[in-house]
């Protein structure tokens, strides 16, 4: 097992490059069926079903957005009620201090503002960005992952990871190229 451990210390994973998205989808599904779990796929545009193929089903950003929106709306309404009806009650044209119809537009805007900001912040944080350096960039031809290359990487931290076996497994799918990605 010492062989495996040293590998895990120096190797990030084995990266296979494919020409078509159907190929990477097929390889990813097969790898998941084979039992690999620590893996990632890379594509220049979202590929339908690819995240599900590597075992990623539910993302929580929608929840983050919902919570952000609720926070924004409630705090917006509370702010207006508190400042206009409690902190500084002020008669304007005989309108009630608690003029709820007039508070609706700002409540709405605050809901949208907070929802949008929490969505983007949530996206960046949950994705672990910013991360300008990443081992995946060490892979051969990886620059094409943002043009027309599709990649599948089985990572060395997978309990089943064994370099030769993974290489042999990925070769079955006739990748365009195969490279060992150093850490």
């Amino acid at each position: 097992m010492t062989h495996h451990e040293t590998e895990a210390e120096t190797v990030y994973g084995i990266m296979a490059e494919f020409e078509h998205e159907e190929d990477v989808l097929e390889a990813a599904e097969a790898a998941y069926a084979r039992g690999y779990r620590a893996m990632d796929a890379f594509s220049p545009h979202p590929v339908e079903g690819l995240a599900e193929a590597i075992g990623f089903h539910k993302n929580r950003v929608a929840l983050v957005v919902l919570l952000g929106g609720l926070t924004g709306g409630l705090s917006g309404f509370f702010m207006q009620w508190y400042t206009a009806a409690v902190e500084y009650p002020f008669d304007v044209g005989g309108r009630p201090y608690f003029s709820w119809p007039a508070f609706i537009p700002i409540t709405f805007e605050m809901t949208v503002l907070f929802a949008a900001i929490s969505g983007v912040v949530g996206l960046i944080l949950l994705n672990g960005l910013p991360r300008p350096y990443h081992p995946a960039f060490n892979a051969a031809n990886f620059a094409t992952a943002s043009t027309d290359g599709f990649f599948l990487c089985i990572q060395s931290d997978d309990p089943m990871f064994e370099a030769e076996a993974v290489q042999a497994f990925l070769t079955e799918f006739e990748p365009k190229s195969l490279s060992v990605v150093p850490l």
């Binding site: 910013p130 991360r131 300008p132 350096y133 960039f137 060490n138 892979a139 051969a140 031809n141 990886f142 620059a143």
Partner: peptide, 18 residues
């Protein structure tokens, strides 16, 4: 492909945003 950024850039990026 070669890395554009040094590994320390990750820390730098977070620290500078913070």
């Amino acid at each position: 492909m070669s890395q554009i950024f040094h590994p320390s850039a990750n820390t730098l990026a977070r620290v500078s945003i913070l």
